[in-house]
Computed example of a mutant assay.
Amino acid sequence: MLFRQLEYLVALSRERHFARAAQACHVSQPALSEAVRKLEDELDVPLVLRGRKYEGLTPEGERIVVWAQRILADRDALTSEAGHLRTGLSGRLRIGSVPTASGTVALLTAPFCLAHPLVTVEVIGDLQSTDVLRQLRDFEIDAGITYLHEDLGEQYRTVPLYEERYVLLTDAADAPAHRTAATWAEAARLPLCLLTEAMQGRRVLDEVFTEAGVRPSPRVETDSVATLFAHVRTGRWASVVPHTWLHVFGVPHGMRAVPLVEPARAVPVGLVTVAREPGSVLARALREIAGQTDVAAALERLPED
């Protein structure tokens, strides 16, 4: 059994298409198909449902692909560990984040890259919270930044980073200068641009609106916090955004941002990794940086400060 065969099977499971899986692995489609067939012969179980086109994995294939992901992750962890012992930490760290938290990733990657100059970092900043956990389980990312909740279970390790609060972002002309806060009920009456309902960040907002006894009717929905700022910039919409994004953009000229109250809500956000030993040396190094970095304090400082 070769690592290459396992890589092909994992790619096929991910892409759900022979040609796309072959392209992702930089091989021809016949070569990938033959390697998977040889793996079936060696394991003596059918792995792929074959018809005129790819129809999915067999039940046996679904079980085997989990082992393949685990074996490949352990191989990569072993390679990173050996490199760390030889020349210092190197490789590629993959971080996935929910959109509401993606503006905070730099608070970890900056000290991480300073401490480990041979490591490159890939940040995927537009994942849904369920995608963050799935990609962690499937070893597609090394660490995730997402909302922390009790349902995470023992299979994950968490490092709390900060508590997400919410501000009402409006055109300055629509917000009296003396106002230092706004209620959720007041926000619901405005023409709103919000995150889509598929995003965990939006579901949090809907829970708070419900607690306040109101139901928003957003005219525009998006999966990008930057897009929320862009729409408020036009002067036609207001939005509810995490306070963390003020650390990135400040309060742009021509806009006002005030805390939302009645109720005041804060939701914990943190770094999540898979709880496996010995696990990824890159993930372990990022956890150490996260434990040493006061992200919450940094987020209180706006750019103009």
Rank of each mutant, 00 (worst) to 15 (best):
L57E: 02
T120F: 12
L32W: 07
T210C: 01
D171F: 08
L271R: 13
V274L: 05
A21G: 03
V123C: 12
R37Q: 08
V225H: 07
L78T: 13
K38G: 02
P176Y: 08
T87Q: 09
L205Y: 05
A290H: 07
P216Y: 03
E60F: 15
H247E: 13
L49N: 09
S80Y: 07
E288I: 08
V65C: 12
H253I: 07
G125E: 05
L108C: 11
E140A: 02
E42I: 10
G270R: 10
D294I: 11
W67G: 06
A68H: 14
L169V: 15
T146P: 04
A22R: 07
F209C: 00
V251S: 07
A185K: 03
A35R: 13
G103K: 05
V204C: 03
G61V: 13
L78R: 13
A173I: 13
A11C: 04
R157N: 10
Q5P: 02
P117V: 15
P176I: 06
M255E: 15
I145C: 02
C25K: 02
S28Y: 13
Y8I: 09
V204K: 02
T273N: 04
T130L: 03
G213T: 02
A198L: 00
D131A: 06
V66G: 08
A188L: 00
R189M: 09
P117A: 14
Q69P: 01
A68W: 11
T293W: 11
V269Q: 09
A298M: 08
V65W: 12
W67Q: 08
Q128S: 00
L85M: 11
Y147D: 00
S97Y: 07
